[in-house]
Amino acid sequence: MRRGEPPDAAPGAVTNARTARGRALDVGLAGYAAVCLLAITWPGFALAGAWADGLVLGLPFALAWNLGWVGLTFGVLVAYHRLR
């Protein structure tokens, strides 16, 4: 029996549970990618990052916005890779 596996789980049930979890993770990653794409292009970036006033950590908001999405993407990929 592997670590984390319920004592009475049949092998087929474990495989099905893993497949379902994998699919859920894939859908989650695809959803994140779609949100990220909308955030760094039109309309997300047009709404959020299109003004010049205000600096974030000394950087213009539009630059910080893009950097934030790069950092978030790295975090999401690390989480996806570990869970998958």
Partner: peptide
């Protein structure tokens, strides 16, 4: 800010390769 497009596509650009 036109140059920021390069940062934008770099965020997701390599994900399909996974």
């Amino acid at each position: 800010a036109a140059a920021f497009y390069i940062l934008g596509y770099g965020a997701l650009g390599f994900v399909p390769f996974y």
